[in-house]
């Protein structure tokens, strides 16, 4: 379990049936916008999350304002909205053979690999707090040792962290530097 500090998150809204919007985003960022429910694209350096039919998040290691500025530039004249929401959120990563069991104690989703696998993301609840959950796709052994990232509002971060630590205690949890 680790906290990943100071990450960049940019909320992006626009019409998925507008080719100008899609090509502008692609030009600015690289990876294609995922258009299907609950999918992600890109990698740890820059990941795009599908959160709604016209809503995405761009998540990167750092540099929220720069990322937002780049997107805003590219989307000039295209009907869209770009908001840097990095400061409002905290990211917690949890990985290991029992990480799925820990999350399923407090999440209404069915996280079984048949329904929620590597490279998928969604907004849901963790221990009653709203979170954005994604399973990392670039893990070598996603089935045996799934790795998840939880993005929660920063005011909930301490609560969610303590809850996760307590839920994971029975499986033996170690906290590592993010």
């Amino acid at each position: 379990m680790a906290e990943l500090p100071f990450r960049a998150m940019v909320a992006l809204r626009g019409r998925s049936d507008d080719p100008r919007f899609l090509s502008a985003v692609k030009q600015a960022q690289g990876p294609d916008l995922p258009l299907e429910a609950g999918l992600t694209s890109g990698d740890e350096n820059l990941r795009l999350l599908w959160l709604g039919p016209d809503e995405w998040w761009a998540v990167a290691r750092d540099g929220g304002p720069e990322l937002a500025a780049k997107l805003k530039d590219a989307l000039q004249g295209v009907r869209s909205s770009v908001v840097d929401v990095s400061e409002a959120h905290a990211t917690i990563e949890i990985a290991g053979p029992r990480s799925r069991d820990v999350l399923m104690k407090g999440c209404p989703l069915d996280l079984h690999s048949r329904l929620f696998g590597p490279g998928q993301c969604t907004r849901s609840l963790i221990a009653k707090a709203e979170c954005t959950l994604l399973q990392l796709a670039d893990e070598q052994s996603a089935e045996a040792e799934p790795a998840y990232q939880l993005i929660v509002r920063r005011s909930f971060a301490e609560y969610v962290w303590c809850w996760l630590e307590d839920a994971a205690r029975e499986y033996g949890v170690t906290v590592v530097a993010g």
């Binding site: 429910a37 959160l51 709604g52 039919p53 809503e55 969604t122 907004r123 849901s124 609840l125 709203e130």
Partner: peptide
């Protein structure tokens, strides 16, 4: 009964 719902903790639609 036809009713409205909102996916508050999801896609928010």
């Amino acid at each position: 009964f036809l009713e409205r719902w909102v996916h508050t903790h999801g896609c928010r639609r």
